[in-house]
Design a protein around this nucleic acid. Structure first.
Length: 855
RNA sequence: GCCCGGAUGGCGGAAUGGCAGACGCUGCGGACUUAAAAUCCGCUGACCGUAAGGUCGUGGGGGUUCGAGUCCCCCUCCGGGCACCA
């Protein structure tokens, strides 16, 4: 017991019970316990220097309530917490102050952990993980090496997003409207050599398996749209005067007869060959302009079409029509084949282009009669083919089939599927990330190195004219730790600060043991030593969070990512709660890695998160997003100081539906604080002893018994459905009722305290003890609702006349229609409305309503 | 432009097609107090009415139904996502 105090002293109570939970390891999850397991996971935070935000406890409280509820219901609950600690702010701080990120990180984590502990969450801290801990990133590197060996990690020079402010490249997913997702800095296209993960190899599965996931529909749709599967056909167009043919992708092969020109992207490899001498100057200018255009300009909302004629012609395979080949930046090199057949009569973009440049528009699909006549000009819908020779009269779907078969027979095309999803750009030019466990060696040395260090197809680059090939360091030698650096500034050459460390970078490398010595020293003896250069890129912040849900199962395992028996026992999270902002970043990447690990046999499930829920955003009191500049930021520490953690937890849940965006209201927290004080007063008398209202023996007040049963049932169901706001309302109704009663059975109030415990655990522990319970209340089995109390002898029937409420009456539960009808007719408020009318129809819903239709 | 989600008192919100506004906040009135705080009690959608009671009312318009906040169609506004992806 914390105190013998008469008043609700949340400070003492919360400190006491937090200490109790820690000392007794109350929330330790037991491996292989015979109870059914329940794994509930929060998206782990980035431990920023700013400390915990008021939004963090929202999701964390929700999972905590679920975890404590499940525990009370007899589950072996795993509820862990950790740190997604690689990231830019820590590194920026290091650049500014010279403080090593490890130092900053340690401090920030201690601060975050303290804040989280003061909220009283039932985490199993023995499983705490930190993505920047070499013991953790060792396994991030290990998974990368498996990807590398399977050919799913490769190096490619390609136009990538470069952020000059951050001095690093960013993935597609990290760029929003031409700006970096983190920090909102402008980004530009640069051709750079980068590590890329072949997430596209999993595109079909990432899409198809969405159907098995219990996720918010909007998030599933976002992923679906991001993966962007479209079925269509590839068609080969012969080119005049050029040997190569031009391959295009189209989703509308049925409109092939309407193709009146072709467009290739300015970056298309055939631009040069297709440009006739007299067009050269113009094309060159255009291509250069397109290259200089920022992507924001290129995808500008105005979308003013531009392009130039190459001078060359292609041949439409279906009718041998000669059609001009244009170069235009509305065709993207990065999608499909970088070339299209333009059908201006049936594609909006082609139509705009054709109009602007006076190109032929040939209609080949007749719209259905009900189509909007203003679509006459350009009809992109489905209809019936016309002007299409052997396709005439066929509806779109059949025409597609027919022409695709024809192309296949002619060897001029085939059915294909395209995805919008691009491979995942995986390298960053930063210090504070996982180093790639990769060494670059010469072609000759590569040949001598064992196959278990290489992918089937070599990953190759060139440096200063020399061809280099990538080999993995031996798994046994992991982790490859971040070296000490003098400066955290990126190198001036677009490489990470690691490139500034010749001792670390240029090495003699023993490919069998992973040992390395600086290259300036003499080559050590032994056959396995080769000259090597380390990879200087580091992994993006997403890497560590791709698999952290697995490490919690077995956080200190030195031999494996996770013990298969533990992976089997705990499985994947039964509930995952976190923000919706990760819909296509973390949640897509983690699915990819998890599926890959499934394929390797490391885990027995093919998806990491079957049930996902997004908590909403808590806005400032003024209804705006909380921000320092608006001065509307609410600090959790000061709320805890003023009202306590229990009140904060309760209030965040009481604000509204968990998934909703809702404003903070300082007055509102006083309401839940008042509720806690009322609960306290019902149990603790003014003298600090048990309230004299509490009696032993059974509950004597039938209404109390009924309301208790209803409350148990509602709180139970609401927690399962994450309707935590209405669960709290119900508890308020219950306590308001108790306040009006003369006396309450000890057992009644004990059960109520159990219901409160997941929401306000500290005060519940304290009251539980004061009621004679043995700590912890978390160990007490969840109360069962006495359903017999819920079936009343009498029910209220509402009387309506013509659908309007006119009165009500209590009737015996099983009352027959005739009885109720008689009551209604004679009801003083109903009768006047029936005067002079005949009842034409009676609708009777037993136990609910009697509606008289009269006229 | 396309795809989602939403709109309910002064505010946050509640409501298996069946009493709209639970619960909380705010406001008003009252009790306790020398006083204040705290606590407790009552009222608190709009309009008409002394009252009993009545009329209206869930963004707007239409529909289905004995009955619609809830289901269907159209529109407005707000939020989110995608956006030249062929």
């Amino acid at each position: 017991m914390a105190t013998n105090e008469a008043d609700y002293n949340f400070k003492d109570i919360e400190a006491t019970w937090q200490r109790y939970w820690k000392e007794n390891e109350t929330f330790r999850a037991r491996d292989f316990d015979a109870k059914p397991k329940f794994y509930v996971l929060d998206m782990f935070p980035y431990p920023s220097g700013a400390g915990l935000h008021i939004g963090h406890p929202e999701g964390y409280t929700a999972t905590d309530i679920v975890a404590r509820h499940r525990r009370a219901k007899g589950f072996n609950v795993l509820h862990p917490m950790g740190w997604d600690a690689f990231g830019l702010p820590t590194e920026q701080y290091a650049i500014k102050t010279g403080t090593h990120p490890t130092e900053t990180n340690k401090r920030n984590i201690a601060n975050f952990r303290g804040q989280i502990e003061r909220l009283g969450f039932a985490y199993d801290w023995s499983r705490e993980i930190d993505t920047t801990d070499p013991d953790y990133y060792r396994w991030t590197q290990w998974i990368f090496l498996q990807l590398f060996r399977k050919g799913l990690a490769y190096v490619d020079e390609r136009p990538v997003w470069w952020c000059p402010e951050l001095r690093t490249v960013l993935a597609n997913e990290e760029v929003v409207d031409g700006r970096s997702e983190r920090g909102n800095h402008p980004v530009e296209r640069r051709n750079l050599r980068q590590w890329v993960l072949k997430i596209t190899a999993y595109a079909d599965r990432l899409l198809a398996d969405l159907k098995d996931l219990d996720w918010p529909e909007s998030t599933k749709r976002q992923q679906e749209a991001w993966i962007g599967r479209s079925e269509g056909a590839e068609v080969e167009f012969a080119l005049e005067g050029v040997e190569e043919s031009l391959r295009v992708f189209t989703t509308r092969p049925d409109t092939l007869f309407g193709a009146t020109y072709m467009v290739i992207a300015p970056e298309h490899p055939l631009v040069e060959k297709l440009t006739l001498p007299e067009n050269r100057a113009e094309v060159k200018t255009y291509v250069m302009q397109a290259a200089a255009k920022s992507d924001l300009d290129r995808t500008d909302l105005a979308k003013d079409k531009s392009g130039v004629f190459s001078g060359s012609y292609a041949v439409n395979p279906v009718n041998n029509a000669r059609i001009p080949v244009w170069i235009a930046d509305y065709v993207l090199m990065s999608y499909g084949t970088g070339a299209i057949m333009a059908v201006p009569a049936h594609d909006q973009r082609d139509h705009e282009f054709a109009q602007k440049f006076g190109l032929e528009i040939k209609r080949v699909v007749a719209p259905p009669k009900e189509a909007d006549p203003k679509d006459e000009e350009c009809f992109a819908g489905e209809g019936v083919n016309v002007n299409s020779d052997f396709l005439d009269g066929l509806p779109t779907a059949e025409a597609k089939q027919r022409i695709t078969n024809w192309l296949q027979e002619q060897g001029r095309g085939r059915a294909t599927v395209q995805y919008k999803l691009r491979d995942w750009l995986f390298s960053r030019q930063r210090f504070w990330g996982e180093p790639f466990p990769i060494v670059w060696v010469s072609e000759e040395d590569y040949a001598a190195i064992g196959d278990d260090r290489k992918p089937a197809d070599p990953v190759t680059t060139s440096r200063d004219g020399q061809v280099l090939r990538a080999v993995s360091v031996p798994e046994k030698s992991l982790p490859l730790c971040l070296p000490e650096v003098a400066s955290f500034q990126p190198s001036g050459t677009g490489e990470s600060p690691l490139a500034n460390l010749p001792e670390w970078l240029e090495i003699w490398f023993n490919w069998q043991t992973g040992e390395a010595v600086p290259a300036r020293e003499p080559k050590p003896d032994g056959e396995a030593w080769v000259r090597g250069r380390r990879e200087t890129n580091t992994m993006p912040q997403w890497a560590g969070s791709c698999w952290y849900h697995l490490r919690y199962l077995d956080p200190r395992n030195w031999e494996r990512v996770v013990d298969p028996k533990l992976a089997e026992y705990w499985g994947v999270p039964d509930l995952y709660i976190g923000g919706a902002e990760h819909a296509v970043l973390h949640l897509l990447y983690a699915r990819f890695w998890h599926k890959f690990l499934f394929d390797l046999g490391v885990v027995p499930q093919n998806e990491p998160y079957f049930k996902l829920f997004h908590q909403g955003i808590i806005l400032g009191e003024d209804g705006n997003k909380m921000s320092k500049s608006l001065g509307n930021v609410v600090n959790p520490d000061s709320v805890i100081a003023d009202y306590g953690a229990d009140a904060l937890r309760l209030y965040e849940m009481f604000l509204g539906p968990l998934e909703a965006m809702k404003p903070w209201n300082t007055k509102g927290i006083e309401g839940v604080f008042r509720f806690l004080k009322k609960v306290w007063r019902e149990i603790v008398g003014r003298d600090g002893k048990l309230s004299p209202k509490i009696h032993d023996g059974g509950e004597t007040n039938p209404e109390t018994a009924r309301l208790l049963a209803a409350t148990i049932r509602k709180v139970d169901e609401d927690i399962d459905a994450l309707r935590l706001n209405t669960a709290i309302s119900q508890m308020m109704i219950f306590i308001n009722h108790l306040q009006k009663t003369e006396s309450t059975a000890r057992e009644t109030i004990r059960q109520f305290v159990q219901l409160l415990a997941p929401f306000a655990p500290h005060v519940a522990e304290e009251l539980w003890v004061r009621l004679g319970g043995k700590p912890s209340v978390a160990d007490a089995p969840w109360p069962k609702a006495d359903d017999s109390r819920l079936t009343a002898d009498e029910v209220k029937i509402v009387f309506q006349v013509n659908g309007k409420l006119r009165g009500d009456a209590m009737v015996p539960a099983g009352a027959a229609e005739e009885e109720v009808l008689a009551l209604a007719r004679s009801h003083p408020r109903v009768a006047p409305h029936l005067e002079g009318k005949t009842v034409r129809k009676v609708i009777f819903v037993p136990g609910k309503i009697l509606n008289l239709v009269a006229g």
